[in-house]
Write a protein that binds this DNA or RNA. Structure first.
Lengths: 358, 358
DNA sequence: CTGAAAGCGCTTACAG
DNA sequence: CTGAAAGCGCTTACAG
């Protein structure tokens, strides 16, 4: 069904090459417009059932598939959305990509892959993708400094949804997860285990995402009458290497101090993985000496040693909702903080009750 | 440069909407064909330098970008390639995707994302992508059973390159890494450390990739006068969970036996990660009791505890070469086993000399 | 070498 | 309701 039938043996004089609408019309002995309307389910058509059937059968048998370019030229819709991500190497955004792709497929749309850095550096690539009417809209990963500032320009030229990180552009549609609730849950989990002093290896200082995550921690601590001390927080890139360095910095600060945090939150899973490595390298037992918990649940979280306590954000749904919002054609400038489904806590072996004070 | 200029204030009577070639021609006071030829660097053009300059400037100032659909209709080239992968969740194929995307970008091509499973299940999606002249060619991830059998059909309709895993279709162009050399290197590393008996948690039994990897191990052992015993090999899916189960199965077999392997090779990094987890769970110290090494180097390899010895395959280059091959328009049916760059060994903490016999 | 004309394949006002 | 005609924006034989 629907798959390209093996082309019939070319009869002498038969046209070769892909099947066009004209071929279908001729085979079904109807006009080309009627064939078009029937195939596109035009409700205004009143063709006799048998005519209709003849058209559908001809299309089926010839393996007719409309030429995407021709249709796009006529209706000025491409059936393509651009997905512009930052550096394809991060495992964290795969879920978002999957969600976006699946939702796009549901609408018979395809996703074209773009890269933030390339688009910033290569004007031609930028122009072709954004101004070449190559795609009907763009899903752009926010939170990347220089690029964020250009997004408003892009949004003026093309329907655009920023995902993942809120950016400072009010007139741009944005979809992002509930970061604050996520870290609040993570912190409450630690408090529930008995921790009273919690440290943070945060993301970059300028990152809005990082700030939201910190807000969740602060809120949870505040409710318990506690606070996140300035000295218990370091900033890191969103990488394992930086996470390693971040924890080492904290360990340095704690040198010889009896009164120190018993748990550390990692700004994301990569940072968390680096922290586990640093802890092992410095003889800090997790969770006996120190509990570690991170934002994002990835394939590796449960297989680390010790397995890593995380909170997962609904990134798949962020992708889904972003594409749906884009294709809904509604007004721009909407901000959606995705609260449903909520973040999910995954308590694992890296968190436990704090060591009893010596 | 090249970026869409902010549209001028619309003068009364001015046409609104995107700039067309006709607008450029009019502004430069030349015919539309001449404008087209100059903008496309037609070498036959002998226009006066000032005419040429006028055209380029008009295009620049109006922010002209050719309509992709219109051009595609005319020249029957879309400027798009399909990248059909299996399940976007695997961290292993990100490198391949990056390589493919970068090379495509170099040729001003964009990548459209497809999914193997979806294409198998959704005839419409399949038809639109493959027969809709939506893309000029396809890079398809091989090694996925049912889909492999359909690839030859696809290749008949559209230039196609299979990447990553060789498939059993001689007339289809294929690009894959040198799996055998990779595992040979890994095994030689273990032999060099003094191991004499090496076990394997392999990929699925039917996987060609898995067979090639096993061949490399066997070859290296053979050269050293050793062999991979049947009892020292188990098969697993390409997942961490399966790797965990795989090592547990081996540990079971070794129960109470003095003479047992001192090193295990993991069919890929996910399996390796699962194995490290299983070892820790069962009190097997890595590398003191057992060395573990895996195929593929991912972001997490060096941050695991212990850090995981791996061999990295040039997946980035596989992607690059696949796209280049596709765009070269050469004949099909070529098989490229990528031997340059060669696999790279990353010796880390998970491998060491075998324990001295009690 | 350049311009006027044709046409890629489709959809949709426009007549009938 | 349906068919003949127009036209989306581009490139390229075809004349000049």
């Amino acid at each position: 069904m629907g798959r390209p039938a093996t082309r019939d043996e070319p009869r002498p004089g038969a046209r070769t090459g892909p099947v066009r609408l004209a071929d279908v019309a001729k085979a079904a002995k109807v006009s080309q417009p009627l064939a078009s309307r029937v195939l596109n389910d035009d409700p205004a058509v009143r063709a006799a059932p048998e005519t209709r059937a003849r058209i559908l059968e001809a299309a089926e048998q010839l393996g007719y598939v409309p030429h995407a370019g021709a249709r796009s030229l006529r209706v000025s819709r491409t059936g393509l959305l651009g997905l512009v991500v930052h550096d394809l190497s991060s495992p964290i955004y795969l879920e978002l990509m999957r969600g976006a792709r699946e939702e796009a497929a549901r609408h018979r749309y395809f996703l074209v892959l773009g890269d933030v850095d390339e688009l910033l550096q290569d004007d031609d690539a930028f122009t072709i993708l954004v101004s070449g009417r190559r795609v009907d809209g763009l899903v752009v990963q926010g939170g990347h400094g220089e690029f964020d500032r250009r997004i408003a320009d892009i949004a003026r030229a093309l329907p655009t949804v920023v995902v993942n990180a809120p950016i400072d552009q009010d007139d741009v549609t944005q979809v992002y997860p509930d970061e604050t609730t996520a870290t609040r849950m993570l912190t409450q989990h630690l408090l529930g285990l008995g921790h009273r002093r919690v440290a943070l290896v945060a993301g970059p200082r300028q990152s809005m995402t990082s700030r939201l995550r910190e807000a969740g921690i602060t809120a949870a601590l505040d409710t318990a009458g506690l606070e996140l001390r300035e000295e218990d927080r370091v900033h890191a890139d969103w990488t394992a290497d930086a996470g390693r360095a971040g924890l080492e910095e904290l360990l340095d600060r704690w040198q010889g101090r009896a009164d120190r945090p018993t748990a550390v939150v990692a700004g994301n899973t990569l940072i968390g993985v680096g922290m586990l490595g640093a802890a092992a390298a410095h003889g800090i037992r997790v969770p006996a000496d120190l509990s570690v918990a991170a934002v994002h649940d990835t394939w590796v979280s449960e297989h680390l040693v010790p397995s890593l306590t995380t909170v997962s954000l609904p990134l798949h749904d962020v992708g889904t909702v972003a594409v749906r919002t884009l294709l809904s054609g509604g007004p721009g400038g909407i901000r959606v903080e995705l609260t449903d489904p909520p973040p999910v806590l995954h308590p694992r072996a890296s968190t436990a009750a704090p060591p009893t004070r010596a």
